[in-house]
Nucleic acid binder design. Structure first.
Lengths: 138, 138
DNA sequence: TTATGTGCAAAACATTTGCAGGAGT
DNA sequence: ACTCCTGCAAATGTTTTGCACATAA
């Protein structure tokens, strides 16, 4: 018989979470790695991936499966929507009220047990839009 | 001086599009490759990727940046939303009317030039939900 | 003390790309 | 003919994993 595994509070986990809480930029795993490495130079990228995954599973943080090639992470777990810049790839929160009843509507018309939804807007951010500095980022 | 490059109608392109139009399952590039290979055994995976990308850029097909590790493709280009099974990864269309004015609302409250939006529901599909066959797929 | 976690490096995937030969127009 | 396109294979980028050592509880 198997007991529930313990989840230990390690330095690495504390610092990963602290660094993620410092920013609102929805960093990729690699960006979190860079941030954390300034405080823990010997941390491995694998550890960062493992712990971001672990915290996302535990509901402490959010794993964002937005467009683009990399997953992004968010320390804010209250439901909210996102907007992504198709030019530079930046992801921002968008302060649109969450549509409460849409999950029920979806459940009624589909054969799924509906668990949630996410809205991702796409557009061009103000930096990329700016005619002056525009040598077209990315 | 550079002329507009021509886009040629090749056998590969025709068959990729035909195969994609045959299904409603939003296949990944690799799944399209498998489908196409039955008719064109010597086609390369790179060709499939290149042409799916090309057709998506041209607006002939849709590239879906949904959750999961792979991009998916859809021959239906009229706006519609999707639902993804968190157990088996399947992606289905969901027949929810498209919210027309939400882009304007988003533009009003953000600093982005808003170009579009997509809603992705997540849930458990009827196959994965079925108590009988459930040895937990994936 | 011992199960869990880490660093490191290799492996596993998904996707892109360089290039020489092939094919559409 | 002259581009553009393809197949192939190698390269790239992201994420996962195996393993010996380290460490929290």
């Amino acid at each position: 018989m198997q007991l529930t595994p313990q989840i230990r509070l390690t330095t690495q986990r504390q610092i990963i979470l602290e660094e993620l809480e410092k920013v609102t930029s929805h960093p990729t795993a690699n960006e979190v790695y860079d941030m954390v490495r300034k405080r823990l130079p010997r941390i491995g990228l694998g550890t960062v991936y493992r712990n971001l995954e672990l915290m996302a599973d535990a509901g402490i943080i959010l794993k964002l499966e937005v467009g683009g090639t990399q997953k992004r992470f968010d320390a804010v777990t209250t439901p909210h929507y996102h907007i992504r810049c198709i030019s530079c790839g930046k992801v921002d929160d968008i302060e649109l009220p969450v549509i409460e009843d849409i999950n029920k509507t979806a459940a009624a018309i589909s054969h799924y047990q509906v668990l949630g939804h996410h809205i991702e807007f796409s557009g061009v951010c103000s930096s990329c839009n700016c005619p002056e500095q525009n040598t077209l980022v990315n």
